[in-house]
Computed example of a mutant assay.
Amino acid sequence: MQAFFSDDQLLHDPQQFMRLGRICKPTDLPTRAEALMSTLAARGIAVGAPPEAGRAALELVHSVDYLDFLESAYARWQKLGGPGLEPGIEVLPNLSPHGVRSGPCPSPSVVAQAGWYIGDLACPIGPHTWRSVLRSAHAAQAAAETVLDGGGIAYALCRPSGHHAQHARAGGFCYVNNSAIAAATLRRRHARVAVLDIDAHHGDGTQQIFYRRGDVLTVSTHADPSGYYPWYTGYPHERGTGEGEGCNLNLPLAHGSGNAEFAEALDTAVAAIERFQPQALVLPLGFDTYKDDPISVLKFDMEAFRLAGERVRALGLPTVVVQEGGYMVDAIGAALDAFLEGLQA
């Protein structure tokens, strides 16, 4: 198995995010990636830096105006000056657009665009955010192209994560949707691609990107969103629309669910994937389902990740594994090791 990661992905170093009305210390720390790299090294899995590839693959799933904003926002923000905007202040929105938001932001102001393109206060843009985001996307693209060229399985150690990023909006620590980029890249050669998201949070961005499409099946197991991020999506009645009708499956789990409930959801997910008959799979892999994760409401242990690896192996599809959440740095290395044990058994 080939893995991809760029050291530039460590440059993104957020200083804050808001949770329940409090400015909190960040949980998406660079040390997350370092812990995962240690596991790959221990298993003898080669990790290569993805080729520089520009924005072409990102533009398969994101609007040009949104990517322009991400690329330019920090430098433009620093030019504003004034009280509270001393050099180095991260870009965060202080307003939300009224009414229906569609198309490019009607205002050229970076302040207006921050409200238009950033959906919550978990996505600060710092001096190196764009570079890390771009290289994270390149890791997903390179993994997908490796699978296209030779089949098998490839792993993209993506950081920042991506599955909350919509076509033109950041959210939930996510700026660019790495899993959607992998799926769109696989679609260059495969008529049907499935996405199986097993992060603790619903993959709302991935759902939004593919919701009207019949060529990509999106399946997500996640904590019940009625009391958990992303709150507004991830419910069973969301089945897709138009050509995508029936091509979206949400399997929310009651808070406190453990391995047994996850295994049952995986059975349902795998059956849906087999009915869809895809030629390739993307697996957004999150470890924030672990029972001791600082933002988890689920109670999985390491056996759950081993089980996930076994189920993916049994599907027998060319697969791109894309790293998503998991914020207990002391546990995510062991979680990845358990997943790989199941995957490679």
Rank of each mutant, 00 (worst) to 15 (best):
S161L: 14
E264I: 11
S226D: 09
E310Y: 00
E274M: 01
G119D: 05
R189K: 15
G152E: 01
Q207C: 04
P127L: 03
L80Y: 02
G103Y: 07
E341L: 12
A191Q: 15
Q344V: 08
G246V: 06
P294F: 04
S107R: 05
M328R: 15
P236G: 00
H201L: 05
P51I: 01
W116N: 06
V270G: 00
G286H: 09
V133Q: 11
E59M: 15
K299P: 00
F300M: 15
L251D: 01
L134E: 14
A56Q: 15
Y290M: 05
H163G: 09
K25A: 13
V297P: 03
Q277S: 14
A139I: 10
D292Y: 11
V193E: 03
T221D: 00
E52V: 13
P26L: 03
E245F: 11
F210A: 02
G316W: 02
V195H: 04
S136M: 13
A144P: 10
Y155S: 03
A170F: 12
G246Y: 05
H12I: 06
H62Q: 08
L148P: 10
D65K: 05
Q279I: 03
Y235N: 00
V282A: 05
M18R: 12
G126Y: 05
S179Q: 13
P318T: 07
L60C: 14
N248R: 03
V193T: 09
I125V: 14
V91N: 02
G256E: 01
R213V: 01
V147S: 09
E243N: 14
T218S: 13
F339H: 14
V216M: 02
V147M: 07
K299T: 09
S96Y: 13
K79T: 12
E59R: 15
T233F: 11
L11V: 03
A3G: 13
I332T: 08
C105A: 12
P26V: 04
Y232G: 06
V193K: 04
A184P: 11
S226N: 07
V64W: 08
V64S: 15
L92Y: 09
G326W: 11
P26K: 04
E303R: 12
F173K: 12
K299R: 15
P278A: 02
P127H: 08
L80H: 03
Q2H: 14
P104A: 13
S6Y: 12
E71Y: 03
T39C: 14
E34V: 15
P87V: 02
H138S: 12
N250Q: 08
G242C: 04
P14F: 06
D337G: 11
Y155A: 06
D13R: 15
D120A: 09
A338H: 06
A182C: 11
G119W: 09
G309S: 03
L80D: 02
G171F: 10
T221K: 00
A265E: 02
G48W: 10
